[in-house]
Design a protein around this nucleic acid. Structure first.
Length: 291
DNA sequence: TTCCAGGACCGGG
DNA sequence: CCCGGTCATGGA
């Protein structure tokens, strides 16, 4: 009897101690007002962060598998303290979004967009992942974009645990064939992915050089890659190069611009952060709120 | 069955 | 310059 009780106690004791030992350190990133993780991850700028059912999100960036959640009005991150600068940069925490949004309010609709999207931050994603993601995005829906990217990583990335993988490097993808890529079921986009990977891997497309250019110059270089048109290039310039004046226009944006702005409306009036204005509009339009 | 999804490309007018 | 057809794929 005593032996059984002792064994039971030991089992629970060990379980509790394991929980304490493996408890995430919970690095504090910023306030929840500065960064709304669900809006930021679900607004259509990235495709590899997924809600884990308990209010948090799990994803991979820089080859690091991390969990992020909001707790007591603060955004917490399951990462060692030495990574704080890395993630502060990833979430663009040095930019004053309230000040940027102050330039946007040209009508009541835009005001609604800003209010609805407050807390979105334009991530500083890895550039190859961003380029690849938006090549895949063309004429595609978001769940399937996520599905194809997931398959790309699980087939050709490095395993991080049982279910998560790093994003394969451009060099790794460049060495593949269209036949090998057919497992993605990416359809006509497969050769586009390959050509982009080879351009990046060979240096024909140099991200550092693109970053040093203005939007027009980067656009000119990007459009030399087959499968990269004006819209995909703009998405990459905004989400990959973090040039905030880029203003990608897709079908949702076309409809919003048609229905809520003057015919000859020029998005450059949104200023140096027009891309953020675009994201507020896109997120609001897609939400189905108001119409 | 047809339509649509964060398009791009190519040809012809 | 602008227009329509075409390019895979899967879900509604």
């Amino acid at each position: 009897m005593l032996i059984v009780l002792a064994a039971l106690f030991r089992t629970y004791y060990n379980k509790i101690m394991d929980t304490i030992k493996t408890a995430p350190p919970g690095l504090v990133l910023c306030s929840a007002r500065e960064l709304d993780i669900s809006k930021t991850f679900d607004c259509g700028q990235c495709f590899r962060w997924t809600a884990d059912g308990s209010g948090g999100y799990t994803g991979v960036a820089f080859g690091r598998l991390r969990r992020i959640w909001t707790e007591d009005g603060q955004v917490c991150l399951d990462a060692p303290e030495t990574e704080l600068p890395l993630w502060q940069r990833y979430f663009d925490l040095d930019t004053d979004y309230d000040r940027a949004a102050g330039q946007f309010c040209c009508n009541a609709y835009m005001e609604a967009c800003v209010n609805y999207g407050r807390g979105i931050r334009i991530l500083r994603q890895e550039r190859w992942e961003a380029l690849c993601s938006f090549i895949i995005s063309q004429c595609n829906n978001i769940p399937r974009i996520r599905c194809i990217l997931e398959k790309l990583c699980s087939c050709f990335g490095e395993p991080l645990d049982e279910t998560h993988f790093s994003f394969p490097t451009a060099g790794r993808v460049a060495a593949l064939t269209v036949e090998e890529l057919s497992v993605l079921r990416a359809g006509y986009r497969a050769p586009y992915i390959l050509e982009a990977a080879r351009a990046v891997d060979s240096g024909a497309l140099n991200f550092d050089a693109l970053e040093a250019m203005d939007c027009a110059g980067a656009m000119q270089q990007l459009r030399r890659v087959r499968g990269v048109g004006e819209k995909v290039a703009n998405c990459f310039i905004l989400f990959g190069l973090h040039k905030m004046e880029a203003f990608p226009v897709d079908v949702w944006m076309k409809r919003a611009l048609r229905e809520h702005f003057p015919q000859d409306f020029d998005p450059t009036v949104f200023g140096s952060c027009a891309g953020l204005a675009q994201q507020y509009i896109f997120y609001y339009a897609r939400s189905g709120e108001q119409q």
